[in-house]
Amino acid sequence: MEMQAVETARRWLAEQGVRQVLGGWVSDEKPDVLLTANQVAHSWAGGVFAEDLDAADQVRLAFGLLDLLDEYWVTCEIRFAEGPLPADALWDGYRQRLEADRDVEAVTYSLWVDWFEDHTTSATAFAEVLGNDIDRVVAAPSEALLRRACRVLECSGPVPWSVKEPIYRTAVRLPTLHPALFRGLRASFHDVYGDLEPAAALALLDTLELPMDTQHRAELRQVLAAGHKNHYRSPGAWDDAVRSCS
């Protein structure tokens, strides 16, 4: 499915006069100028949503372009698209790539800074990429589902605590997810828009089965026990914890 999406995107770019060559990309307009994938994304990705296709096919084509170029900007163009995007195509696109056995940094970065930091979209996005499926992940985990769950948990810092706490509490039943849960809790404290409730987060932290030498576990426990909600609201609290735990 993914390879088909890539080839569809490659054909579409070729129709725009853009083709891949050794070391980068070139356009028919300037065949002597070597372009990076990022330049291709900035110049052509938005054009996907001007194509005479239904909205779902536009979204699928855009995700194919993301697979081909591996550039975060493609996800920006997906968000910038005019009108409501079809939810099935949009979130299926994210879920499939979160489950892929390869690096998906552009996808997780998009979730983190675009969908999760925006409180008008964070609850829906978190539900679509993990919350709606967490019971299935815990009851019948597959490698693909675990990859998706771990990736979402790790970048879930900005998701409102009231939204993610029930999902965290379900996820804690599966020890395989504990390291990702820990990183999610740590991000909930450290991210600029991170959100947590210290007492509830501390109680959750204390249920996690982690190696004794897990980096920053003691420091996170100390700041939560002291009632701190966020690194940026309590300047110096983390440094104090580092000093006292060293």
Rank of each mutant, 00 (worst) to 15 (best):
T207G: 07
L174Q: 06
D54C: 11
C150A: 13
S246P: 15
L61E: 02
L34A: 05
L224A: 09
P160M: 00
R19C: 15
D54M: 10
E105W: 14
G24Q: 06
V223G: 03
R147T: 05
G194K: 02
G46R: 13
Y72W: 14
D195Y: 01
D103I: 09
G23E: 12
E71W: 05
D206Y: 02
I134S: 00
E29P: 14
W112M: 02
Q16I: 03
L90S: 02
P86L: 11
D88N: 11
E154Y: 07
G236V: 13
L22Y: 15
E77S: 02
Q39H: 05
E7Q: 12
M1L: 14
R217F: 12
V192E: 13
Q16C: 04
P179L: 15
L174F: 04
L65E: 01
R10M: 05
T121F: 09
I134C: 02
P175K: 05
R169W: 08
L85T: 05
A125N: 04
T214C: 07
E15P: 14
L210Q: 14
W161T: 05
S142D: 06
A226W: 13
W73Y: 14
L196G: 03
V21L: 10
Q20R: 15
D57Q: 14
R60W: 15
S110A: 13
P141G: 04
V104E: 01
E71P: 00
A144N: 03
D191C: 08
V26H: 14
A144D: 12
V113W: 09
F126K: 03
V74D: 00
D92F: 08
P86W: 10
V33W: 14
A171H: 05
T170M: 03
E29W: 15
Q222F: 11
Y94E: 06
G83D: 08
R102V: 11
G47R: 10
D54Y: 08
A106W: 15
P198E: 02
N38E: 13
V40A: 02
W91M: 04
V192D: 08
S156M: 07
K164N: 02
V129P: 00
A89V: 08
E82F: 07
L177C: 06
I134L: 01
A237F: 07
Q96A: 10
V192S: 09
R60Q: 12
G184K: 03
A9E: 04
D213V: 12
L130C: 08
L174V: 03
V137E: 00
D32H: 15
C76H: 14
A125S: 10
E2Q: 12
R19T: 15
V152G: 00
A45E: 01
T124G: 04
A123L: 03
V152M: 00
S244D: 11
R102T: 15
